[in-house]
């Protein structure tokens, strides 16, 4: 049997698109790329976008590939290289109504995720809006803003002043079921994953190729931030006394300790770290280690004693699934990633 080899070959040729990213070189995008030995998300970003700091675009476009298990970039695996998004208008939100029966609680100063001053009031706000618009047996909703985050879980959401809250990290509830957040709240499926990075002095020889590189090091993470990723089953860096963890009072304080040489690395999420480095004038002096240390996810939460607890949560989860299936999820995330990096540069 003669196979029509040539036409098949033509059809399989990837569609190469050259797009202009504002303020940078031409990009090679809307293609799939086979990971080579030694590649990192950063190096793939540089090869395709001409900039290492666009790596989160690839990270979020490949959540299905990178999530679960080690989320390592295995050579031979194919990753999708999206084009940076243009200006995508937010979807209509007919269900978002003043005096709606369902209210969601969030707060500002958490850009690019939630902030009233951010386009669309933040990436997560826009995702939550879009998901609720696609939810089964939909309920009109409104979003309320309380900038004092310390009041959100207790007493506001626990007391049902508002129905649901976002965005929240989920503790390791399987390991610590008595954690008050685990006991009091249900968590939705992840709204989005957050890569948690190590930031080092540019000149330092600190490396992170595998977990074996970490014991003996001194890390800084601001006080009040979660630590369960450092102490999970295969690490036990804290309970085993393997590392020294400095809990400075703020992300800025952590970066000051880093530059003073007191700590080997600051560990916060990629967005927070990148913003602080720019804000503190440390560009080129403090840099991310090009491999995420862990992955946290942001969730919608609802009190376990809410009269529609699991029903509301299902509305969010089903809406989120529909949003991902439609491709709209990726458009929203890409748009906000572009806005984020544009603002830093």
């Amino acid at each position: 049997m003669a196979l029509p080899v040539f036409p098949l070959f033509v059809r399989l040729m990837p569609v190469l698109a050259l797009a202009l990213i504002p303020g940078s070189a031409a990009a090679l995008c809307d293609v799939t790329y086979k990971v080579q030995p030694g590649d990192t998300l950063f190096s793939i970003s540089e090869a395709h976008y001409g900039a290492r700091d666009r790596w989160t675009l690839i990270y979020y476009a490949n959540q299905g590939v990178l999530t679960g298990g080690s989320r390592e970039l295995e050579p031979g695996r194919e990753v999708y290289i999206p084009c940076p998004a243009g200006d995508v208008a937010p979807d209509a939100t007919p269900l978002r109504q003043a005096d709606a029966q369902m209210t969601l609680l969030t707060g500002s100063n958490y850009s690019p995720f939630t902030d009233r001053a951010w386009p669309g009031r933040g990436m997560v706000t826009e995702l939550v809006n879009a998901a609720l618009e696609l939810s089964p047996s939909p309920v009109p909703y409104s979003i309320e803003w309380e900038d004092d985050w310390s009041r959100h879980l207790f007493p506001m959401l626990d007391g049902k002043d508002n129905d649901m809250g976002f965005p929240w990290l989920r503790p390791d509830c399987e390991a610590t079921p008595d954690n008050e957040r685990c006991k009091a709240f249900h968590f939705s499926d992840p709204l989005m994953e957050l890569p948690v990075m190590l930031f080092k002095r540019a000149a330092s020889d600190f490396t992170y190729e595998s977990d074996a590189d970490i014991p003996g090091r001194t890390l800084c993470r601001p006080s009040g931030y979660f630590t369960h990723d450092l102490d999970r089953g295969d690490r036990r860096w804290l309970s085993g006394g393997k590392i020294e963890l400095v809990r400075a009072e703020s992300p800025e304080a952590c970066f000051e300790r880093l530059m003073a040489g007191d700590v080997d690395a600051v560990t916060v999420n990629a967005f927070l770290g990148a913003s602080k480095i720019v804000a503190m004038g440390l560009r080129g002096k403090a840099v991310p280690v090009e491999k995420p240390l862990s992955h946290e996810a942001l969730h919608v939460i609802i009190s376990k004693t809410h009269w529609r607890g699991t029903a509301h949560l299902y509305r969010v989860n089903a809406g989120l699934r529909a949003l991902r299936a439609s491709g709209r999820y990726n458009e929203i995330v890409s748009k906000h990633l572009r806005i984020f990096w544009d603002q830093l540069n």
Binding site: K304, T305, W307, G309
Partner: peptide, 14 residues
């Protein structure tokens, strides 16, 4: 009162 009742029962339930 309603919320107090739901809290009491649902805390026990979960």
């Amino acid at each position: 009162t309603y919320q107090a009742i739901i809290d009491r029962h649902m805390t026990r339930v979960w």
